[in-house]
């Protein structure tokens, strides 16, 4: 039942709110983002998922494999597996997904978010520097939306990520701290309805 509302809500995901920030296209490319790719080997996150009035929790493992793939595995605290995804450069494969979660709309959203976090695209250099003031915006135009990585001016860290449709923000991903080669805390917040995923690293 819990998963039905998730599907229904995600279907309503089309509308968004308008951003107050105006972005100036400076059409500059550089390799800033390539230098900021996460370098973790294996990290475990305490994970909380809130969607509308529902709440799920568990443990999310990200692990780089020897064959250059990255696995993202989410289980509940008692070991019951929700999903196991494999990310390779520009590619994605569902190794396992609990039947109730195994809906295209859900998997696409999870794929989009984790792909952004893992920075597994080969075309990171294709991101355009579109705005510079107190932070730097790197933008890539997709078929349906635009993806932004926002870094500090010195390109020493990624502050947040955004997915937007024109000037309307759809998803914000905030990163906090750095541990084991990736952010210590990651907050994924949908802007059009209540859907939040919060990750915090666990020391093992």
């Amino acid at each position: 039942m819990r998963i039905l509302w998730l599907s229904s809500i995600l279907f309503l995901f089309g509308c968004s709110y308008k951003t107050s920030e105006s972005i100036v296209n400076t059409s500059v490319h550089n390799n800033c983002l390539s230098t900021l790719k996460p370098t973790f080997e294996s990290v475990l996150f305490n994970t909380q998922v809130d969607i509308t009035s529902h709440h799920l929790s568990g443990l999310l493992l990200m692990k780089k494999m020897q064959d250059d793939t990255t696995r993202v595995v989410f289980t509940n605290e008692m070991g019951l597996k929700y999903f196991d995804f494999e990310f390779t450069t520009n590619n994605f494969k569902v190794i396992y997904c609990m039947k109730k979660l195994n809906k295209k709309i859900i998997i696409n959203q999870l794929k989009k978010n984790f792909s952004l976090i893992l920075m597994n695209k080969t075309d990171l250099n294709a991101y355009q520097l579109v705005r510079t003031d107190s932070v730097k915006y790197y933008k890539l135009d997709g078929a349906k939306d635009q993806t932004y990585y926002i870094t500090d001016t010195g390109c020493t860290k990624i502050l947040r990520m955004e997915i937007a449709d024109g000037e309307k923000k759809k998803i914000l991903l905030h990163l906090k701290g750095e541990k084991n080669g990736i952010a210590d805390e990651i907050a994924i917040n949908y802007q059009t309805f209540k859907f939040d995923i919060n990750l915090k690293q666990i020391e093992r």
């Binding site: 294996s42 475990l44 443990l59 493992l61 692990k63 696995r71 289980t75 008692m78 070991g79 093992r204």
Partner: peptide, 15 residues
């Protein structure tokens, strides 16, 4: 003690 073994990943999540 609980040990979740992810066999292909050669990972153990202990609690």
């Amino acid at each position: 003690t609980q040990e979740k073994n992810l066999s292909v990943l050669s990972e153990k999540i202990k609690s």
